[in-house]
Amino acid sequence: MATRAMGNYSHQERITSFFHSISSRYTKRYLIKRLSNTVIIFFVVLVINFIIPHLMPGNFAITYALQIVREHPGASFGVVYHRILNLFGLNHPIYIQFLDYMRAVISIHPNFGPSFQFYPTNAWVVVEMAAKWTLLLLGTSQIIAWGVGILVGIYMAQRKDKFFDKVFQPVFYALNTIPTFWLGLIFILIFAITLKVLPPAGAYGLTPTIPSIIEHMILPLSVLIILSLPSHALIIRGAALEVLSSDFITAATAEGLKQGTLYKIIFKNSLLPSLTQLFLSIGYLIGGVMTLEYTFSYPGMGTVIASAVLSEDYPVLQAALYIAALVVLLSNLSADLLYPLIDPRVSYE
């Protein structure tokens, strides 16, 4: 890169030029388009979240109040009912409700109402705590799955139609169809109950020490990796195959470049489509992670959602949807921002 040519420049100038070389990769049009996309989708999710309670039969304040009273027999229906009415502004016209809703929700601590199970704790607090665990599982598993997936994918592409490729292609396709929660149950059956080597539930034992956390992560992590690595590897295999048959690889081979250099070139060129796959799959994976957490009673969003479903704790469900959407949107946005840095042709679209 151009910065390599600079010899005796001051620290300050080096930093400025570094930022410039990055920012010059983005065209204004591209940034605007991507950001506006994100905002639109976020808005749509909020609207959906708003509309759904109104689609329930009857006045949902009554439903909510009834639920709360059912969970907490001590509470007085009348008091709760009026609280709900005021909280959601249900005696105001709908557009005012919507504005109030937006105001309540677009903040650092969105207010979806109180959790029914943990009344009067705010639903958001319940979900927020759990989200950390979910992100831990999701993040760690994807880093490992993607990292290894790239190596496996390129390996398979370079040895196309040879033994490994021929055997593992159908195996990977089959692996993609396994339900996460089911594999979780099987793993618990084998490793926790039959072999008794790993814990079957929870994020940690008695105290959240790091070794304990890691021990409890192993099983759910393995399930996630086993189920997401195949699709990563297959996509990368496809991308690498295209790269391998391209002209510039023929040219690079003709140049007699070292194997290591060739590999680096193939790697970088396969990176873009595989990065796409990684970030797009997060939306799909969130569902899998959640059911898996429920299986392991892992204190992430999955368990929170499952118990919310059981006790019909609607605000918690809304808050969970909000966070899930947020995670997916942010990962898509990061992908959009990362692409031009890897493939300089992208920002010109």
């Binding site: 002209d247 510039f248 060129n269």
Partner: peptide, 10 residues
């Protein structure tokens, strides 16, 4: 007509 140069590198 061939693109004999690596498109993602300068």
């Amino acid at each position: 007509a061939m693109n004999s140069l690596n498109p993602v590198a300068t």
